[in-house]
Design a protein around this nucleic acid. Structure first.
Length: 470
RNA sequence: GCGCCCUUCGUCUAUCGGUUAGGACCCCAGAUUUUCAAUCUGGUAAGAGGGGUUCGACUCCCCUAGGGCGUACCA
């Protein structure tokens, strides 16, 4: 372990076609730790599974990191392209006696493994101590790691603490498959070493691998990186997060209307904390983050809290940006907003932005702006339009038509004065007015609703509902 | 089966041997009130169980239970 080298962290996802939210948090932790220490945050694409590693699947990773606002330093490393280098390392171990050629396969392999387990230790191939004959060398074979039979391997983990494994439980893992392809545990070690990674921060499903990888580092005579295994994210029910929990991939959270800065804040707070701080800026997170403060236990995704955090960031967000996002929601629904409508949304956003937990909700709350006239009124509103209320709203319509100040404040004042002059509470006309203006029963304060709708449209909607034929 | 890890309010967490176990989300009540929210005030709610160690354990050790991960020529 070296402590003087500048910190280098990395995120090493496989291109599977989507980016899991757990991967996103691991990326965030790596990013925060690198920034906190003034180090570098790298990306390595583990694309050795040729079936799944399509260009599109790789693009998903880039898009996910970009959307989350976690830019990596330098050029991405593609693991598959480094296969020759991996093989070179294996040959080096072979020559040094740290690895051996193995022709064990098929049922023979299975039987040997079962026998080893029955004897209370991990698999050791008979080829470990056998000299291959020249005739064997021509036949396809794997190359296995020659693991120590006795003793312990200790992983010093920044999160989990000191974890001890008995070497007898660690099998002679395959380094190079019989088709010449390097295996995961080998490639990871070689790549992390070559990339000068100082801190391996990853999911705790790899804690067991850390022991195997430690052995490889030692066999190669390389410095060990610091390990930090962070727990996985579970669904609200405590089970492994999956599709049925609502969302799993970063792109899905984006589609549901969550802001990247909200995701960063929420995800950072999931499994890590800085005292009682709940809502904090990226700069705060970078200043405060230490991987040693990460928790050991798995945590569950809580939609309510995510919504709370997201609402906070929506309130802070720039209106023009929100208008773009809202327009994207409408476009995704097949109802793209033209320039005029988008401008309308931009004007109305300040009136509703403090009410929405997601961008999708924000779009829903703006939808009344675009309803086509004449609005079809719900039954409740129609019932409310009895003679008395109709007459009262007609008088209100007259006052609205006479005013020029269409600001929310002025309209609110006008409504208050009107209620007073009528000698009634809002309850006598507000529900009906809301129904007429929005076609629904929930909307912002009426002053705001009128203001957002605009003078012309408001009066027209009133006329639609109040005209004798309606 | 074997190995490793984890376990404080419903959820996310604070605590790093001595606290009335704190905060946030959710929930409930009140305030506000033209709906729904938002906002403000207040409230309910926790150390998985059992043994130790100690003057004193949420905190240290052991056992049990529950959960997770691994145990591949997958990554």
């Amino acid at each position: 372990m070296s402590d003087s080298r500048p910190v280098v962290t990395r995120i090493a996802p496989s291109p599977t076609g989507s980016m899991h939210i757990g991967t996103a948090r691991t990326a965030l932790f790596n990013y925060l730790y690198a920034k906190h220490t003034g180090g570098r945050f790298l990306l390595r694409v583990e694309d050795t599974d040729r079936e799944r590693s399509t260009e599109a699947a790789v693009q998903v990773i880039f898009d996910g990191l970009t959307w989350l606002g976690l830019p990596f330093d330098g050029e991405p490393v593609f693991q598959f392209a480094r296969a020759d280098r991996h093989r070179e390392a294996v040959l080096q171990m072979l020559e040094a006696g740290k690895a051996y050629r193995c022709w064990l396969a098929g049922e023979e392999l299975t039987a040997a493994r079962e026998k080893a387990h029955a004897a209370g230790h991990a698999l050791r191939s008979p080829w470990r101590d056998r000299d291959p004959r020249p005739a064997d060398l021509g036949k396809p074979h794997a190359i296995r790691f020659r693991g120590p039979l006795n003793g312990d391997t200790v992983v010093e983990d920044l999160v989990q603490g000191q974890v001890t494994f008995r070497n007898r439980d660690l099998d002679d893992l395959v380094l190079l498959r019989s088709d010449g392809a390097p295996t995961y545990n080998l490639a990871v070690v070689v790549d992390d070493h070559d990339m000068a990674v100082t801190h391996v921060i990853r999911g705790d499903d790899h804690l067991n691998n850390a022991a195997r990888q430690t052995l490889i580092y030692k066999a190669m005579g390389w410095d060990l990186p610091h390990f930090a295994h962070v727990p996985l994210i579970h669904g609200p029910d405590g089970a492994k997060l999956s599709k049925r929990h609502g969302a799993q991939a970063v792109a899905e959270f984006a589609d549901l209307g969550y802001l990247p800065e909200a995701m960063r804040n929420y995800l950072a707070r999931l499994g890590w904390s800085h005292g009682d701080d709940e809502l904090f800026s990226d700069a705060d997170a970078i200043a405060w983050f230490d991987i040693a403060d990460a928790n050991k236990g798995a945590s569950r995704l809580d939609w309510d809290k995510l919504g709370f955090v997201n609402a906070h960031y929506i309130r802070l967000a720039d209106d023009a940006r929100l208008a773009d996002l809202v327009a994207a929601v409408f476009a995704a629904r097949g109802e793209p907003l033209d320039e005029a409508r988008k401008a309308h949304a931009l004007r109305a956003i300040p009136l509703v932005k403090e009410r929405a937990k997601t961008i999708v909700e924000l779009a829903d709350q703006l939808a009344f702006l675009y309803r086509a006239r004449p609005l079809t009124l719900d039954e409740k509103t129609r019932d409310l339009l009895s003679g008395e209320t109709r007459a009262r709203l007609t008088r209100l319509r007259g006052q609205l038509a006479a005013t020029n100040d269409w600001s929310a404040e002025a309209l609110e004042a006008l409504l208050k004065a009107f209620a007073e002059s009528e000698g009634v509470g809002f309850g006598k006309f507000a529900p009906a007015l809301r129904g007429i203006l929005t076609g629904g029963t929930a909307s912002p304060d009426l002053g705001r609703t009128l203001s957002a709708l605009g003078r012309e449209e408001s009066l027209a909607r009133l006329d639609d509902a109040l005209s004798p034929v309606a």
